[in-house]
């Protein structure tokens, strides 16, 4: 029997992608979930003791460092959300004031091209108590200026948040700007003719029109926050103590420093669950958006 190449070729071409997906993603996820139920330490041990299969998770929930990591991820999410807020405000201003659009857009976006490691190192330098901003402000006469945030467990997360906002601001601004530009220009004209005030226009018309953009930004931000690792490492190395640990940091630490694969896997599975919880709304929102678009087209 002859092979129909027009049928077979595309399927053959898909083999690498299918293999990668099946092995490196689906297979690997299953592997991690499996291992999280075992007593594996430095090397994988595939036997599951049914009597105590939740052992790693029980330990995890008792672990103070994990609790700190969860708390930090929340603080980080709330704090970094400011990047969306300011990103929107900046986008709105750039869109309104056409002057210098290219300049401001280019400027606000460049930190995104810089790696988290470099970002962390740069901000660590800014926060340096003896040689950074604090010293500069004290030199100007503000004696009580305290920017030694990274040394204090209470404020170290805020330092990381500031650096994250610096890094991500332009990204959210770019997304918001794209959203604003997609709004029909006649809407703005109509509002001007109606004499609608600036605030009412944004609160009642523009922001509701951009709700899908806001949702996208929020979900991308949360997904990024869950994965936060590099910037913590570069700024505080998790410290002081474990005060700036994040779930991602926790996983790497359990694997690399403690050499406990089983424990690291259980934390990784928790990360997957968090991602899934954040991800579900995105999938639903996409489906909802598609349905709405269909309804509009009719």
């Amino acid at each position: 029997m002859a092979i129909r190449w027009s049928w077979a070729s595309p399927r053959i071409a898909l083999i690498p992608a299918l293999t990668v997906t099946a092995v490196a993603f689906l297979g690997a996820i299953c592997w991690t979930i499996w291992i999280s139920f075992t007593r594996s330490r430095r090397f994988p041990d595939y036997a599951i003791n049914l009597a105590e299969w939740t052992r790693q998770y029980e330990r995890l929930f008792r672990d103070n460092a994990w609790e700190t990591a969860l708390k930090n991820v929340l603080i980080l999410a709330i704090g970094s959300a400011l990047a969306i807020v300011f990103g929107f405000i900046l986008a709105a201003m750039i869109e309104r004031e056409k002057r210098g659009e290219g300049f401001f857009r280019t400027l606000f976006l460049y930190p995104l091209a810089v790696s988290f490691i470099v970002t962390g190192i740069v901000w660590r330098w800014m926060f340096n108590p003896d040689l950074g901003i604090q010293n500069f402000l004290r030199g100007l006469g503000w004696e009580s200026a305290n920017f030694n945030w990274l040394a204090d467990p209470q404020t170290a997360m805020y330092g990381i948040i500031l650096a994250s906002i610096w890094h991500g601001l332009g990204f959210y601004m770019a997304l918001m700007l794209a959203g604003l530009k997609s709004i029909n220009s006649e809407i703005w004209s109509a509002a001007r003719l109606d004499g609608v005030s600036f605030w009412r226009l944004y609160i009642e018309i523009i922001i509701p029109m951009l709700k899908f953009t806001f949702l996208t930004c929020a979900i991308l931000l949360s997904l990024g926050v869950v994965k936060t690792y590099d910037i913590v490492l570069a700024m505080t190395g998790g410290g002081p103590g474990t005060s700036t640990w994040t779930p991602a940091y926790f996983v790497i630490n359990s694997y690399a420093a403690r050499g406990n694969i089983g424990y690291a896997s259980s934390a990784a599975v928790m990360m997957l669950l968090m991602t899934a919880a954040l991800f579900l709304p995105l999938v639903l929102a996409t489906a909802w958006q598609a349905r709405r678009r269909e309804a509009m087209a009719q």
Binding site: A28, T32, A264, L272, T275
Partner: peptide
């Protein structure tokens, strides 16, 4: 499935890789 995979945190597949 690819869409879902694109959002999987690296940590979950790191050790098996």
């Amino acid at each position: 499935i690819l869409f879902l995979c694109a959002f999987v945190p690296f940590q979950i597949i790191m050790i098996p890789l």
